[in-house]
């Protein structure tokens, strides 16, 4: 029970901490106001209530594939929002109001969906009369792992070492790629995307079911045995994010370079 709760904490709650760490740590120019935080907190509570109470009805939609469709839409919204704020990694310009609200909405929905999954687990435990002690200790450990890791990640992303060595950009590109691939298995599960054989299997090195597997999956979308569709979407996202970074850097250079005129 204890280990299971820790693992579920890492699976459901850890991605929220990592997402917030990346947004706060990597985009130093993103200034969140009290209003934004209130919107996030209030929106999360309302969304959790809505998702938790309606998840069964959502699941019934699309011939029983409603949850997969819901998560695909959610992941796509978060991915697009993160891609849109990618220029903030090096750009000093402020975030546009529309984009700001899209980002907050995406984070709110992502947090709510993950929290709802965790509450579903809790309700299953309560309904089966499981002991609370194991769950409580597991939750305590799980929260400790999430908090400590996210603080370290935020500090690292904000450090000059991460900026100078481009590690911040590197991690951001891989994090977004991992996010982009989340939809692949969901769509394969409901037979929208075909499934090919796995290209390699390094489960002996780091298994998906291990703690490191969970961690690396959340951070960079690690899969021990990925399919061709997974690898293609991963690298497509890497290319797209790199293009956004390069184009925004070029645009910034053009703005900062003074116009030299030939004056006779």
């Amino acid at each position: 029970m204890l280990i299971n709760t820790v693992l579920l904490f890492i699976k459901d709650i850890f991605p929220i901490f990592v997402l917030l760490s990346f947004i706060v740590g990597a985009t130093s120019n993103l200034r969140l106001t009290k209003m934004d935080l209130s919107f996030y907190a209030g929106g999360t509570i309302i969304s959790v209530l809505l998702i938790y109470t309606q998840i069964e009805n959502i699941g019934e939609l699309f011939d029983g594939d409603g949850i997969e469709v819901f998560y695909c839409l959610l992941n796509s919204t978060v991915y697009m929002s993160l891609l849109a704020i990618t220029p903030l990694l090096s750009n000093k310009s402020a975030l546009k109001a529309v984009l700001r609200y899209l980002l907050i909405m995406a984070i709110t929905l992502f947090t709510a969906a993950n929290l709802s999954e965790f509450f579903i687990y809790l309700s299953a435990m309560v309904s089966s009369n499981q002991t609370f002690i194991g769950m409580f200790i597991g939750g305590f450990f799980g929260l400790g792992i999430c908090l400590s890791f996210s603080i370290l990640l935020t500090i690292f992303l904000r450090s000059s070492l991460a900026s100078i060595s481009c590690l911040k950009h590197f991690l951001w590109v891989l994090y977004l790629a991992g996010f982009a691939t989340q939809n692949v298995y969901l769509l394969q599960q409901i037979d929208v995307v075909s499934t090919s054989n796995t290209l390699w299997d390094i489960s002996n090195f780091v298994a998906d079911a291990s703690e490191y597997g969970y961690l690396l999956n959340t951070l960079i979308g690690y899969k021990a045995a990925p399919t061709a569709e997974y690898v293609v979407s991963y690298f497509a996202s890497v290319v797209i994010t790199l293009m956004v970074i390069i184009l925004s850097a070029k645009k910034l250079n053009r703005i900062n370079t003074p116009i030299v005129r030939n004056e006779k």
Partner: peptide
């Protein structure tokens, strides 16, 4: 993890997933 599948099944309901090839 082996099949790369994850599906919530509600009480007294059924769920379907596609696996393979």
């Amino acid at each position: 993890f082996d099949l790369n599948r994850e599906k919530v099944i509600f009480p007294n309901k059924k769920g379907r997933i596609f696996i393979g090839p």
